[in-house]
Design a protein around this nucleic acid. Structure first.
Length: 593
DNA sequence: GTAGAGACTTAGAATTCGATAC
DNA sequence: GTATCGAATTCTAAGTCTCTAC
């Protein structure tokens, strides 16, 4: 606990020191406050005991999507083969569809149906009467126009620079806020532009119109004593709130699901960094009592109460397979996806014996983001018997499960098991796979393999990149060329050696040395390419970044780097290093998760 | 105890950036 | 200088979990 507090304090101190770096942007005023903040630690304690998340918050408000620009007259929309001028409202919605014309979405019935229904709401009475069949609508010319525009944008190098200057200006003006005397980066300061809703999987609402968000929809959150963000001229905010128990700066309600959207801080901010660190500390606490909890749920399999037996089986799956909790969802409102507690009978098959293994459970269901989870696992005999009850009779409620977990350990929820099992797997895999003899590229391949083991555990998949085959071919071509280069270099070395044997002079000896070095250099380059190819092939369908960013305690990776003298830059890019700054500064070689 | 709102994290796809080869 | 392609970044959907009102 003491070390946790020290670490937390350290993070705060580091944040204050960062103010020095930021003085270029922010001036000495900020620097001065940074140090006052550093010295006034009592202030900190107060913030953590009264439940507030901040003392002072000031920002400029959100950046709205640019207004709709009507299409030039020569770009036509056709209905039933005839050109037709649409009203601006209907035209805007039509452009959303036109921009997606090449996408598979526009071929799906639900998407088309939802789009057409919402599009008609934006039409004038005459348009409504005339446009009755989506099949007769021709958006090709619109689509071609947008494609040409995007090509032209790519070609304009100089003007592009103007755009990025403008982006930088907007970033500096709206992309930062002041929270407790620190200038913090805002994650998503731009309001989501209007468009067509793209749900994942078979989403019943795909294609619906995501309406334009106006200042009147926006709730702004800031300090009472701050300079409040101004709405655009002649407009009003929905509300200006001063709630320091929450971390969001701006919120609005979206029209598809009726859920609230937020503008929050960047992962590099103090508020997010501390939360992340706490998450890993909870997972480390689980490590200390996981044996007791595992014994307990094994014991519970024998319980006379079915409720307890089922709970124990669910927990076993969450622990062993890193399944998500699986909250209940409103039927028909979202894609049909499940997690552990919402599994249904059709998602599981039970085998007394399968492929030479006893008591096998086969899982086949769509999880978060409609990613398929398929796994066949041998389980303990009792589980198989209880699982039969579980899937027939029980749809377990996650809040009851979490309540039980809370009793087992303070702060324990189903999600903590995922964090714990992911991090401990990485630590074990790194120990197992890192070979002392290997050079840095080979060690990094081992590091990536350890990461992949975690990604497989957490079922982090991605669609193979469209350019995958081509990129593999390119890499293979490079490897072949390098191999040719190597055999040429070896041949040259051989002949230089023979030459030196005959001549026996200094010049030919030097030539041999130079040729030797060339061979070594090419061998190293070749190995690097081969490692890269292996890595890319193994990564084909695995979303490596997800586990790396959300489940793996960065101190494990940083400690591994320190142990093998590998620069942290080799495993974390700039953004990742900013997010994990707390860990990079703190972790040492002996860190044990 | 339960439903729903609210706040926050986790997630893969889409887009943009920038290094490299020519 | 430009084209290409992989990496980095952005975007926003889709989860988890807590809290509150009944």
């Amino acid at each position: 606990m003491v070390s946790c507090q020290l670490a937390l304090q350290y993070v705060h101190i580091r944040q204050c020191l960062l103010v020095v770096d930021r003085v270029m942007f922010f001036g000495t005023f900020q620097l001065l406050f940074g140090w006052v903040f550093l010295l006034n630690s009592r202030w900190e304690e107060e913030r953590y005991t009264d439940g507030s998340k901040w003392r002072f918050l000031e920002h400029k408000g959100p950046v709205f999507a640019p207004p709709y620009e009507p299409l030039p007259n020569h770009v036509k929309f056709y209905y039933d083969g005839k050109a037709m001028k649409l009203s601006p409202e209907a035209e805007e919605v039509a452009t959303f569809f036109a921009k997606m014309l090449d996408h598979e979405y526009t071929t799906k019935d639900i998407f088309r149906k939802n789009f057409f229904k919402d599009w008609r709401k934006e039409m004038t009475t005459e348009e409504k009467a005339k446009l009755t069949d989506l099949k007769k609508c021709n958006f090709t010319e619109m689509s071609e126009y947008f494609k040409a525009q995007s090509e032209a944008r790519k070609a304009m190098t100089k003007e592009e620079k103007q755009v990025s200057k403008e982006n930088e200006r907007i970033l500096q003006e709206y992309g930062f806020c002041i929270m407790d005397n620190h200038r913090e980066r805002i994650a998503n300061f731009r309001i989501e532009p209007p468009g067509l809703f793209r749900g994942r999987g078979d989403h019943p609402k795909m294609g619906m119109l995501k309406r334009r968000i106006r200042p009147e929809d926006i709730i702004v959150n800031c300090s009472k004593d701050s300079k409040h963000p101004e709405p655009p001229p002649g407009r009003k905010w929905k509300e200006v709130r001063h709630d320091n128990k929450v971390t969001w700066l701006v919120s609005w309600t979206e029209n598809i699901q009726g859920s609230i959207k937020y503008i929050m801080l960047n992962p590099s901010s103090r508020i997010k960094g501390e939360k992340d660190w706490q998450k890993y500390e909870t997972a480390r606490r689980l490590k200390k009592c996981v044996d007791r909890i595992r014994n307990q749920y094994r014991e519970d399999w024998k319980s006379k109460e079915m409720r307890i037996r089922q709970r124990a089986v669910a927990l076993y799956f969450i622990d062993k397979l890193a399944l998500r909790a699986g909250n209940e969802k409103e039927e028909g409102e979202t894609a049909d996806t499940v997690g552990c507690c919402s599994l249904r009978v059709e998602h599981i098959k039970l085998y007394p014996e399968n492929d030479g293994q006893e008591y096998v459970v086969e899982f086949d269901f769509l999880g978060k983001d409609s990613i398929r989870y398929y796994n066949k696992v041998p389980v303990e005999k009792r589980v198989r018997t209880k699982a039969a009850f579980f899937i027939y009779l029980f749809i377990f409620c996650t809040s009851i499960l979490n309540k039980h977990l809370q009793e087992l350990m303070d702060g324990l929820t189903a999600k903590v098991f995922r964090t714990y099992n992911a991090s401990i797997t990485l630590q074990q895999q790194l120990k197992e796979l890192t070979n002392v003899e290997e050079n840095i590229p080979a060690k990094i391949l081992s590091y990536n393999r350890a990461n992949r083991a975690v990604a497989i555990l957490c079922n982090h998949q991605r669609a193979p990149p469209k350019t995958f085959e081509k990129s593999m071919q390119n890499l293979q071509a490079k490897i072949d060329a390098k191999r040719d280069q190597l055999s040429d270099a070896k041949r040259e070395l051989k002949s230089a050696k023979a030459d030196a044997k005959v001549r026996k002079d200094e010049k030919s000896k030097k030539t041999v040395e130079t040729k030797k070095k060339a061979v070594q250099r090419i061998e190293e380059q070749l190995m690097k390419l081969e490692v890269q190819a292996t890595d890319r092939e193994e990564n084909k369908q695995i979303a490596l970044g997800t586990s790396k960013l959300n489940y793996l305690d960065p101190r494990i990776s940083v400690a591994w780097c320190k142990k093998w003298g590998i620069p942290v830059e080799k495993i974390y890019n700039k953004t990742q290093r900013e997010k994990f700054a707390w860990a990079i500064d703190m972790a040492d070689e002996d860190f044990e998760f």
